[in-house]
Design a protein around this nucleic acid. Structure first.
Length: 594
DNA sequence: GTGTAGGGCGCG
DNA sequence: AAAGCGCGCCCTACAC
């Protein structure tokens, strides 16, 4: 157990001078409507209500907590800072420097994020759960809940903040050796990109928001149960169907096969009209909420934070940033609806360079499965779906996309959809989503069967992965990736084919195709991460990543050169996959699109 | 009132 | 034998 110095002493602890690595944890005021979740980091710490009530530091053994105004800040200069969700503590630190509470000259050598470390090693991201699973250490989170609204819990808060700092320091000491330097760089870069942020066209955003509100309101008024019941109430929908003698659909999800089947039968009824209105309301409302969230967090420099979450997915991919705004799932706006992406603009004098890795997952799958014939064609510069038409359908021509659009779409759907074990029934929907084509159940069965017969390299990969998984029954399955990283499946049970991907987390189901998908998504992530680091190193100023897409903000005069450079650095295959055919495409734009 | 689960919508 | 996968946020309903 750690001994803790009382804050009442308010003297500089001797151990702090000796520690080169210090875990730091701030406690700050928050309330309903005023929180990181509501506003994001920057808008939160720059708000008039902002108040840092406590700071705790620890070396893993001893801890010290006190009001930031009394903390001996110069002692921390040049030390390595450890923080759980370092982006938050960094934002608070910088804010306290701006307000004069922390001397500006006090600069950490580097920030490390233990939440990112936890994600990387397959531990829970939440500090209390991570401390429990990694250290067997119990942290009481009830104090934080009681602190909301600024309750006077000074003593309890003191101990609580200290406990968090101690846990973070211990996690760092024990587990940081398992976190490679280039992954730490990715984590730091992710936080940096979040604070670089993206400029918002506030006038456009407000205009769109207003028109969405208006359209939504009139759609709501077309619902007979509104405002008596909630506009999108499932119960109201069911009752409405019943009243009109129409059986309710099993789902009201637009673009879902079951709903479309229902529409075939009841498309001309009043409930169908109402449900379409409900779908429109849900969709418009979502866009409005995204805009509202963006507008609420515009910083003094006209930008919003653009945080994403390093290693947010079990495969290592980044995920949307949390804190109430996900910039990785903004509407693509193909139908000409409200252009959310267009509200993210390059600052005056700059342009966006938007690049993405072309068909990165099919390329990684073929590479991993050893599909030589397809790889050779693609290496020679052929379009991946044309190459598929050649190797799988015996097509020989010039421009498949124009000669036979349907075969081209089918090849795309097959290549993207069938690589991970999708069955005939599901492929009907997948073909529609990925290729925009209709296939009958009979066709689908034939296509799926033929794909599996003609792609033994891929089906073998599924089977090998599933066998390897089964053989780890009762233990952990560690699947090495070409990059040197590993995917982890913990406490494998081959009986029901389940395992955990997070220590102490829920058991999930697996099968060969799914393991294959995880593997390929992880490899594609590592390829992208490699390019991202290069983009940062050569000064391309990346500000946002969306899985296989990179948005950089560059001086307008250098945009052409930057685009070329961005495509080049993204296309260089990683050292661990020199023969992987990587391709990238991109464009220069004044605002975010496609 | 708060917390949570499920449905739904959006992305790669 | 068969199974696309990976995310985050909002709304509604419901338990407490």
């Amino acid at each position: 157990m750690s001994s803790s110095q009382s804050s009442i002493e308010a003297v500089s602890p001797a151990w702090l001078a000796a520690a080169s690595e210090v875990a730091i944890d701030f406690e700050t005021f928050y309330a309903a409507g005023y929180s990181v979740q509501d506003m994001g980091f920057s808008a939160y710490v720059n708000h008039p209500r902002f108040d840092a009530t406590m700071v705790a530091v620890s070396d893993g053994e001893l801890s010290f907590s006190i009001n930031p105004r009394q903390f001996p800040w110069p002692m921390l200069h040049g030390k390595t800072f450890i923080a759980h969700n370092a982006g938050f503590d960094f934002a608070v630190f910088r804010r306290l420097q701006e307000s004069g509470i922390i001397p500006r000259g006090v600069q950490p050598a580097v920030w490390h994020d233990t939440a990112a470390l936890c994600a990387y090693i397959g531990a829970p991201r939440a500090l209390d759960d991570a401390a429990d699973v990694l250290l067997g250490m119990k942290i009481d989170k009830s104090v934080r809940a009681r602190m909301k609204g600024g309750a006077d819990l000074f003593d309890a808060t003191d101990a609580y903040a200290a406990g968090d700092a101690v846990a973070a320091a211990r996690i760092w000491k024990k587990y940081s050796p398992f976190w490679p330097e280039h992954e730490r760089e990715l984590s730091r870069l992710t936080i940096d990109m979040g604070f670089r942020g993206i400029a918002i066209d506030g006038i456009k955003a407000r205009d769109i928001f207003q028109s969405l509100e208006d359209t939504t309101e009139s759609a709501k008024l077309s619902l007979p149960w509104y405002p008596k019941q909630a506009p999108t109430s499932p119960k109201a929908i069911d009752a409405h169907c019943e009243k009109h003698g129409v059986p309710p659909p099993e789902t009201t999800r637009a673009k879902e096969g079951a709903f479309e089947d229902w529409l075939e039968l009841h498309g001309h009824t009043e409930p169908a009209r109402a449900i379409r209105a409900v779908q429109e309301i849900r969709s418009l409302n979502r866009s409005a909420k995204v805009l509202e969230t963006m507008l609420a967090r515009i910083r003094a420099d006209g930008r919003i934070d653009a945080h994403t979450l390093y290693f947010g997915a079990g495969t290592g991919r980044w995920s949307g940033g949390g804190h109430g705004l996900n910039l990785q799932n903004l509407n693509r706006n193909e139908a000409g609806d409200a252009d959310l992406r267009g509200c993210l603009v390059a600052a005056p004098g700059t342009m966006f360079v938007i690049v993405d890795l072309s068909q990165i997952e099919p390329r990684c799958l073929a590479w991993m499965a050893g599909d030589r014939a397809w790889l050779d064609l693609v290496r020679g510069g052929m379009n991946p779906y044309e190459a598929h038409a050649m190797t799988a359908h015996g097509w020989h021509g010039q421009k498949l996309k124009y000669e036979s659009p349907r075969l081209y779409s089918l090849c795309k759907a097959e290549r993207l959809g069938l690589g991970y074990g999708c069955g005939a029934q599901k492929f009907i929907a997948v073909a529609k989503t990925l290729g925009g084509i209709e296939v009958t159940p009979d066709e689908s069965r034939k296509i799926v069967g033929e794909f599996r017969r003609s792609n033994p390299a891929i089906t073998n990969l599924w089977n090998r992965l599933e066998d390897a998984f089964r053989r780890r029954d009762g233990a952990d399955y560690r699947l090495p990736l070409p990059s040197g990283r590993r995917l982890r499946y913990l406490d494998v049970s081959s009986g029901d084919m389940t395992a955990r991907v997070v220590r102490g987390g829920p058991r999930l189901n697996f099968y060969g195709g799914k393991l294959c998908e995880n593997l390929i998504q992880a490899i594609a992530r590592d390829v992208f991460a490699d390019g991202l680091l290069r983009a940062e190193q050569c000064g391309l100023n990346p500000i946002l990543t969306v899985h296989d897409e990179l948005i950089c903000e560059v001086p307008e005069a250098k945009a052409e050169a930057a685009l070329h450079l961005a495509k080049t650095v993204l296309t260089i295959p990683p050292a661990w996959a020199p023969d992987l055919p990587v391709a990238a495409e991109g464009e220069i734009a004044a605002f975010y699109k496609k």
